[in-house]
């Protein structure tokens, strides 16, 4: 198995930026969206985005594997 590529690692960093390191920017109550305080709404949205990021990273890794298998 190959080490994770730099590209897929960079994709994995995106959820950390969105849900963790940027907390001072989104930790507030207003504006409320769909009835939820902004911070709760933000996290729910980012759960979905994170799942998308992982799907993307998976495609990157699959693609690399296929390329390597073809080379052999």
């Amino acid at each position: 198995m190959l080490k994770p590529s730099a590209l897929s690692l960079a994709i994995g960093l995106v959820p950390f930026l969105g849900m963790c390191f940027s907390v001072p920017l989104w930790d507030r109550v207003s504006p409320m969206i769909l009835g939820l305080p902004f911070n709760l709404f933000w996290l729910v949205t980012w759960i979905v985005i994170s799942s998308g990021c992982m799907a993307l990273a998976n495609r990157v890794e699959e693609h690399r594997k296929k390329k390597r298998d073809n080379a052999i």
Partner: peptide, 16 residues
Amino acid sequence: LYIMAYITLGYVISFY
């Protein structure tokens, strides 16, 4: 709210 964030990010790490 930390609970929501860490569980999701725990899966991100698990991927790698």
